[in-house]
Amino acid sequence: MEQVLTYLGYILIVIGAIFLFLGGLGIVRLPDIYSRLQAGTKASTLGAMSLILGVGFLNPAWLVKSLVIVIFIALSNPISSHALARGSYRHNIKPWSKEDIDAYRQYLKEEGQKEREEEAKQTENKD
């Protein structure tokens, strides 16, 4: 039984390390911040989760703690990458796109127009 856990742990650790490497390769190769967020943070997340779980299997006394770290990474990483993406977009960093597919820009434009109209109304009312 212990033998099986050891093998399983090492397999998970190697897979994790490979995904960490792929994440690093992704953020070096991909063209813009949004695509890098995809490959970089997410491949690294899976890599980290798999590696830490692997350590938990190698040393069953640590399993609970490593599960806590895995769950924390799984919950926190999407939030931080989403916040970073939205922050970058609102900071006027345009995504790199071959075919110029961007539904969000349309939405922001409409929202901006509405806000400007409302502001105009308010200033009119004040006068």
Binding site: L20, I27, L37, S44, L51, I52, V55, I69, L84
Partner: peptide
């Protein structure tokens, strides 16, 4: 860009955390 650096730092944090766990083992 600044956000590229932040993202790289974030990835490094996750990578370092898993390295720490492995070193702990």
């Amino acid at each position: 860009l600044a956000s590229d650096r932040v993202m790289a730092a974030d990835t490094m944090t996750v990578t370092t955390a898993s390295l720490l766990v492995f070193l702990g083992y």
